[in-house]
Amino acid sequence: MDDVKKNVTADFIMSILLIIFGILIGWASLNMRVYNKFLDAPGFFPLILGIIFVVLGTIMLISAVKRKALEQVQEVLHKDRVVGFFKHDQFKRVMILIALMAVYIFGLIGNMHFTIATAIYLFATFLYLRSSSVIKIIIISIVTAALISAVFKNFFNIPLP
């Protein structure tokens, strides 16, 4: 039942976002340059997409309101529940995994050799996931990073970032 409530809340929020998104697309499309006729203008098709998003968002909104979304939103977004969500194991786990990926992509790659960056990322992620013992993790990280770099660069002739 909790899942149903969460889904209703998610649908309600998504529907509002979709309507706003549709309006913004429509507005941006109407401001695009018209070269010849509006029918072949660059903004014509995005304008139609904007209208479709507003229509689909409205259908979702009506559906969510009929499923008592306003009551569910208050319940689901209650302070205790929101705090509980942020403290939930799964949320923390996903956030940490995303943070590790972000550090790897935006922080390590480009600032050091790809192989070293990959080895550091793999080591940190394996360590967080407790994939194996520390010694094994170090060995797997280094060997995997070196292997990936060698295979792609030398065997497949693919450029590495």
Partner: peptide, 30 residues
Amino acid sequence: REILMPIIVPLTVIGAYAGGVRVFDITVMF
């Protein structure tokens, strides 16, 4: 799976970068 899945990430980075050789494509992929 705790060993296999993280190894996918560097492969996705190479896969995204290799086509256009643009770092921007890695950001798009992420």
